[in-house]
């Protein structure tokens, strides 16, 4: 199936996910349009990370369905029978989804540039010289052109996270997922990462962001999703969520994280 303008880029339809007897996602439905920036907020343990991780199949779901660009994620219909996709197919599906982790997860044995160009070369089979050129441009975009030959252990947390963002961008993903990208950073390093994310969002990149940076959420989000107790409680524009929403759960959460009306 090819994506058309009428199909949302991401469609999460009635997804349930359990870890043993614990239900972590309970009948969650959500649609994300191309070019949209959706921010997920909510208390710890709400299932925000799990929701992001199901999108690129780092977690398998128990029921419901997820579509990315109109294509069923992880499963396919073959002659009327629903089958698990092959490993190759799952790998292909993951390519269109980029992910930035709380702990950066840069490849420790590679320099910043090698981190950025590894997947384009090995997965997309782009010529090494071309990948290098594009990789350096990306590092320049995140303000780290002069750190290309540094290993992750030689970079600050903020720098590592910006390399991780460049690495995800290098695969030109249709959607970019961020799971608390600034939570592991010292306070003075948070802004440099948010600045890069803001810049990416302005270029029309579809993004789903889990964050506790409420000011940032308010500023970049097209829509904000409030999750609690394994469910989506509220979806709305930043104004609706942060200012006018009467939901008591939401009010309590916002109060706890220090958001003033």
């Amino acid at each position: 199936m090819t994506p058309t303008t009428t199909v949302p880029l991401v469609r999460v339809a009635g997804v349930t996910k359990r870890f043993g007897r614990l239900t972590v996602l309970d009948d969650v439905s959500l649609e994300v349009e191309t070019g949209e920036v959706v921010v997920l907020i909510g208390p710890s343990g709400a299932g925000k990370s799990t929701l992001l991780r199901t999108l690129n199949q780092l977690e398998a779901i128990d029921s419901g369905a997820i579509y990315v660009a109109g294509e069923l994620v992880g499963y396919e219909m073959v002659n009327g029978t629903l089958l698990h996709r092959t490993k190759e197919d799952i790998t292909r599906q993951r390519r269109r989804i980029g992910m930035v982790f709380q702990q950066f997860n840069l490849f420790q044995h590679m320099t910043a540039l090698q981190n950025v160009i590894h997947a384009p070369i090995k997965v997309k089979r782009i010529k090494s010289a071309d990948a290098k050129k594009a990789g350096l441009e990306l590092l320049d975009r995140v303000g780290l052109a002069d750190r290309a030959d540094h290993y992750p252990s030689e970079l600050s947390g903020g720098q590592q996270q910006r390399v991780a963002i460049a690495r995800a961008l290098a695969m030109e993903p249709e959607i970019l997922l961020f799971d608390e990208p600034t939570s592991a950073l010292d306070p003075e390093l948070v802004d440099e990462v948010l600045r890069v994310m803001r810049q990416i969002s302005e270029q029309g990149q579809t993004m789903m962001i889990v964050t506790h940076e409420m000011n940032f959420a308010r500023e970049v989000a097209d829509r904000v999703v409030f999750m609690a107790d394994s469910r989506i409680q509220e979806i709305g524009t930043p104004d609706e969520i942060f200012s006018t929403n009467p939901n008591a759960r939401l009010r309590a959460f916002l109060g706890a994280v220090g958001v003033k009306r």
């Binding site: 780092l58 090995k122 995800a168």
Partner: peptide
């Protein structure tokens, strides 16, 4: 080697084999 390394590799679209030989094993 932390599991975050293979998760990052997989989400970049590296195959299981590539993840093992290029990311996990070298570390």
């Amino acid at each position: 080697v932390s599991s975050g390394q293979s998760e990052a590799a997989q989400s970049l679209g590296l195959s299981g084999r590539q993840t093992f030989t290029q990311i996990v094993l070298p570390q």
